[in-house]
Design a protein around this nucleic acid. Sequence first.
DNA 1: CGGGCTGTGACAAATGCGTGACATTTCTCA
DNA 2: TGAGAAATGTCACGCATTTGTCACAGCCCG
Lengths: 227, 227
Amino acid sequence: MTKETVLIVEDEEDILNLLQFNFESAGFDVHTSGDGRDGLALARRLRPDIVLLDLMLPGMDGFDVCKALKRDAETAQIPVVMLTARGEEVDRIVGLELGADDYVVKPFSFRELLLRVRAVLRRSTGQPAERATMERDGLSIDLEAHKVFIQGQEVGLTATEFKLLSELLRTSPRVRTRDQLLTSVWGYEFEGYARTVDTHVRRLRQKLGDHAALIETVRGVGYRFKE
Amino acid sequence: MTKETVLIVEDEEDILNLLQFNFESAGFDVHTSGDGRDGLALARRLRPDIVLLDLMLPGMDGFDVCKALKRDAETAQIPVVMLTARGEEVDRIVGLELGADDYVVKPFSFRELLLRVRAVLRRSTGQPAERATMERDGLSIDLEAHKVFIQGQEVGLTATEFKLLSELLRTSPRVRTRDQLLTSVWGYEFEGYARTVDTHVRRLRQKLGDHAALIETVRGVGYRFKE
DNA sequence: CGGGCTGTGACAAATGCGTGACATTTCTCA
DNA sequence: TGAGAAATGTCACGCATTTGTCACAGCCCG
């Protein structure tokens, strides 16, 4: 999965820096501009996945930048989130007239902005709408419902067991070392005993019953899900 | 297929022009009015396929226009989509008091409006009497009337409980994390305690009585509505 | 046969969830 | 408008489950 690109057009340096830092932390590829005209040019050249646009800008205000983006068929589908200063009349302007996809009123929490940006991106990229499930040898796992079935019979797994199984199944039939599993299932921060994995594999096998052998031990290396 | 007719009643010229332009681009036959009383008369004469109605209007406000349309058997079946300012009266607008078929909160993107209009048209041309309802295991929920029934017996839910239940039902049988529920039920701005969700789930379960088990707890993950 | 690995049982600590209680906000109706 | 009721969001507590660790047993392979 490749990073998503966000273009931030905002003239207040403090805010710009803050946004840049936070979006980078959140895993975005960030480009910035402090000027309307420049921002518009940048948007046309970069074709970012989303544009954050301040309303008050030198050069050309956010209002016009947005209209310009939406008028041009090449950039019309790039979602725009407006950063506005005032609450009231802005309600009217943003969105409809401008064609912006969402807006946030200053002062806003970064958390809220991020949630909105993600929602807009999810909408614009269109959902796969496909139910994420995996199946092998009578064992099926429904990632969205968080359920596991053996021969159609539901098996109750704990959260950790579920993640471990999904991970092994996802990467099947590659071998995963204990350390790799610790990182992908438990997270980077986890600093524990590597053999904790063994315990969970054991519990998983117990619950899998007849199908316990689906999780294979690779001596001296780690575990893998049977091909 | 002949063009569908839309009547837009809105007093702000900028917005009206924009809507007119966009709906025409989208292939509609557009009529407009900037006044409530006039709009009502136009609706009676034209019998459009759908009416977009601003809430605040000179002459006669959108509330009354809508009520008048719905009271008259001749026009009662014409679907109405309300354009509202940000507010909480929304619950009353749809279904119950006004009989509007949907609403959009300003500011909205044209894209969103168009989606809703199309959805409403699809509904109204298919089964005029059809309502947006969902049903499972003796629990049925009427989204338009904002009512929930268990074995035909109405259950009184609060606004939050209703939204929570709809959300879980809508996404059933996917698991929703507390955070996801917070954003979809409480909104982006909500920055509270994630376990507030628990409390509402509890209250919901209480009211669901025998059917409490329909809302399943997925330990370590969140909640889901039973499949 | 022996040294490293892995499986196993037991257990204490940590975690997650349901619950009751309560303060605050919002709604309702006189 | 104001009093009372309802709804909402937070919190602390207690219980059951889950989780991580360890010691030891058993096994595989050289």
